[in-house]
Design a protein around this nucleic acid. Structure first.
Lengths: 336, 336
DNA sequence: CTGAAAGCGCTTACAG
DNA sequence: CTGAAAGCGCTTACAG
């Protein structure tokens, strides 16, 4: 495997010069630089990131961590966006799946490992304990989170309360008043704010038109299709008869629609359903949704990371809020 | 950042002993090993992979490369399976998206980069030129491909011809004879065999019952929902009236179903549709499909890579063929 | 503009 | 069982 000394020997210069020439550092004559580049290309030389990491302390890699087993689309989309900009800048992307919740000790340990492996960290939609936030700060590397607001950490996200209002107001405007909310995880001990915030928007919108939300119309659902199925089944069992459901995500909405269909309800005639995300497949279901550009959120986070990698960590904890947009399709209509 | 010398100092031993103790190498007394472990844990010491990579030539990372922009689910699932087993063995997973086809030069260059970054490579469903195969061999690292058979490289895949037969025979058994095939990429210059093989199975099955496949009933479709939509639109324009469609993947099938619905056809009354994969969302559509366990294929490939990493490259080019299973749901029925 | 040399944090023969 | 030392392939003050 050709190394820097091979290039140096062949070019008749020192390895220091090769290093400087290839990385575009100043202090190399144009002629020398050109010569070195040519020879490096001929030899197919490429610097070893491991070897470069030792003196510089930079690995050239960025870690993208996602909760394993959590509903897939969102994390995939964030990662894709991030990967796109990171690779374009020559950074490697290391993917880490961490077990969700509970196994907290294990996760902190993970961060120890990460410290020597990545230059920066992008965390997708993971609830973090204060301990973990502290561990992240101790890494002394740029960190961005996409999804929730995590105190002490900068993030890219949407205004979840507004999302809840937009979805609910759309249903209200159509004439619905018996609107169910499918979302929230009763087992969450980490205070993951996304579902609760969306529900706040839902509650606010209802109260604004003088409707006090019926607690029986709120059913828990994590961010998966299966949870949506279970959520509608639960509504059915409670014998409450909402004319519409606001689902905390499109995947949940898909599950709700599936189960409602199975129980003989037609959508939107018997039940209106609105979700959140604009999942790649939502149009297939004619799903009305509050759309967010998840890939773009990944890109923004990655760019911010890159800036900090260049300019140095500024310890900012700013929250970037990305626009959201109601996309009306065929899953919502006035109540019968 | 605590390094090996800190641990050594604190434990009153040499760094060599720390290195051996922590990695479970022989030649360390139990007492010493225990002591070193304890102190390493106290100090939160974790070896630097970059530093270790230099003397060993092993980065502790495996690269997973997928075509960018290609239909997403399959690649995500393969990666998930692979990541699961790789992480469990302490390997990092580096994700690379490569541009598809055409920009061939760029891709070969990518491989130069990869050489010094990963210990092994898992390639998902990417057509490779002979040049590229040679470049991979030159890396002298274990390589596995998941999806197609690539001459000269070991792979994990399903029997695509059989898949085509299974799907088509299912439709034939239901009484269909006018069966369309949606799949194949007219722009493919690299001979990616998956679609063609599935079509061979389709042709064989039809001929077996004395039906000569009508060329007008074959429409091109890459592996995306959008391609499925376009494929059905094309059939519609040709004014051929198949009673059933065999789609080369579930995503294509979903697109076909969507567009058929939009044109006023009911499924399965007016049109039966069968796909391939058992995509995570196929059950939502009631889609009949030839199922494969894609995550498991990723796991198998990763395990094989790990074996070779331990036992040394054996230069094998064996092809592991994974079972496939017809899952009948509500998108197929006898023709009207 | 260029080079000699120290050093990054590990691993691994080689000695004892 | 343990340690001293060389070496992995780079980068970067420091000198010139």
């Amino acid at each position: 495997m050709t190394g820097i000394v091979d290039v140096a020997a062949r070019a008749g210069v020192s390895v220091a010069t090769v290093s400087r020439a290839l990385r575009g550092l100043p202090g190399v004559s144009d002629a020398t630089r050109e010569q070195v580049r040519k020879i490096a290309a001929e030899l197919g030389y490429v610097a070893s990131p491991s070897a470069a990491a030792l003196p510089t302390g930079r690995t050239g890699a960025v870690g993208v961590v996602s909760p394993v087993a959590r509903g897939g689309w969102y994390f995939t989309a964030v990662s894709q966006g991030a990967q796109e900009v990171l690779n374009a800048q020559g950074y490697d992307v290391l993917r880490y799946d961490v077990s969700d919740v509970a196994t907290n000790r294990y996760r902190v340990f993970d961060m120890q490992l990460l410290r020597k492996r990545v230059d920066a960290l992008l965390i997708t939609s993971l609830p973090l304990t204060p301990d973990e936030v502290e561990a992240l700060h101790a890494m002394n590397r740029p960190v961005m989170v996409v999804g929730p607001i995590v105190p002490g950490l900068p993030s890219v996200r949407i205004d979840d309360v507004a999302v809840g209002r937009i979805a609910t107001e759309h249903l209200i405007k159509l004439g619905h008043r018996d609107i169910a909310f499918a979302g929230g995880d009763p087992d969450d001990r980490l205070g993951f704010p996304v579902s609760p915030d969306r529900r706040i928007g839902y509650v606010e919108a209802l109260r604004e038109v003088g409707v006090e939300p019926d607690p029986d119309l709120t059913v828990p659902a994590v961010f998966t299709v299966e949870a949506g199925v279970a959520a509608f089944a639960e509504l059915w069992e409670r014998r409450v008869k909402p004319t519409a459901v606001f689902a905390v995500s499109d995947e949940v909405a898909m599950g709700v629609m599936y189960e409602a269909n199975r129980r003989g309800l037609r959508i939107p005639e018997d039940l209106s359903v609105v979700g959140v995300d604009d999942h790649d497949m939502s149009w297939l279901f004619g799903l009305t949704t509050v759309a967010q550009d998840v890939r773009e959120e990944g890109r923004i986070a990655a760019r911010t990371l890159l800036e900090q990698l260049t300019a140095g960590i500024n310890g900012e904890t700013s929250v970037t809020t990305v626009e959201t947009k109601l996309v009306v399709r065929s899953s919502t209509a006035p109540p019968a």
